[in-house]
């Protein structure tokens, strides 16, 4: 947080069919539908989030991720980071306030991995959904499906993750919390945090630019992860793998796909990272265990199926 970047703010995902996508993000994962705009985009959030939305869905003829945004502490931080990004050589685009409903101006930049990221400082705060801000109850009634607590992080695939990681660490002030290194000590998977979480964003090296591996949502307990797995079977949803535990970050997890093929994760638990902590290293020979702690073998689909 030393450069003013606080947390993931929103992710905009492309879907092939909006109503089908809503059965996934709203009815299965349990996000709240907050708004829609003239372009037909749908805005959602998880119940514990203060800001108005964290997931934006856009219907398109190719699924994947449009952009991933981080919220900064104030507009001055956005200005400073904007100047630093330009100086570093990133292509920077200014998106005016209101382009996303009830969101302030955003600064968009590109990265060597081919992903678009954004920084912003202002978005309407509607408060936790279904909970009073004074004397708040433990959780709101009326949540659907997996009852996701918050949008947590993303994992993206692309070329030159070293280049993108440098932007995140040197300019945006992220820490490299965990890393998988190959025999030459080069990072082939980088997990970055701007908070105390084990990761707010992660990258895995792959020749194809701009790819989404998954968008991840937090659940409270392991029992919630098992119930999420039950719902995936009950509703005949496309499963990827799990429930299991990761070696990397040690989170307890399950992966599945939305109706357009974008991968989702719900998880609970896992490690934490303070700025004085050294980077946790995994060696490539242990990649199976790093990714799936119980099976300890790589799963081809997990590594190669992307949108």
């Amino acid at each position: 947080m030393k450069k003013g970047v606080m947390r993931p703010g929103h992710i905009q995902l492309r879907v092939l069919d909006m109503e089908e996508a809503l059965t996934h993000y709203r009815d299965l994962i349990g996000l709240i539908e907050m708004d829609r705009d003239e372009q037909g985009r749908v805005y959602l959030k998880a119940w514990s989030e203060i800001d108005k939305f964290s997931v934006v869905l856009r219907e398109a003829d190719e699924p994947g991720m449009d952009f991933f945004a981080f919220k900064c502490v104030d507009e001055a931080s956005v200005d400073n980071l904007r100047a630093e990004l330009i100086k570093y050589g990133c292509k920077v685009e200014d998106i005016p306030a209101g382009d996303l409903k009830d969101c302030g101006r955003r600064v968009r930049f590109d990265t060597p991995t081919g992903h678009k990221f954004e920084l912003f400082a202002n978005k309407e705060q509607t408060g936790k959904w279904g909970i009073n801000s004074v004397n708040p109850e433990a959780w709101p009634e009326g949540l659907k499906g997996m009852k996701a607590v918050r949008f947590d992080h993303g994992l993206l695939y692309g070329p030159n993750i070293a280049g993108t990681t440098e932007i995140f660490t040197d300019i945006l002030g992220f820490d490299l919390a965990e890393q998988v290194v190959n025999a030459d000590e080069a990072g082939i998977a980088n997990f970055l945090t701007c908070s105390c979480k084990a990761h707010d964003i992660a990258f895995i090296e792959c020749p194809e630019p701009g790819k989404l591996h998954h968008a991840s949502f937090l659940l409270e307990t392991w029992d919630d992860v098992l119930r999420a797995a039950d719902l995936i079977s009950m509703r005949d949803v496309s499963i990827d793998i799990g429930p299991t535990r990761h070696g990397l970050t040690h989170g307890k997890t399950i992966y599945f796909f939305d109706p357009s093929g974008n991968r989702s994760e719900v998880f609970c638990g896992g490690d934490y990272h303070y700025p004085d902590h050294p980077t946790v290293i995994w060696q490539e020979e242990q990649l199976g265990k790093a990714i799936f702690y119980h099976d300890r073998v790589l799963n081809e689909r997990f590594l190669t199926v992307l949108t």
Partner: peptide, 11 residues
């Protein structure tokens, strides 16, 4: 080959 089962990944 089986991937996403949603028309997104192309495998």
């Amino acid at each position: 080959d089986v991937g996403c089962r949603g028309g997104g990944c192309g495998v």
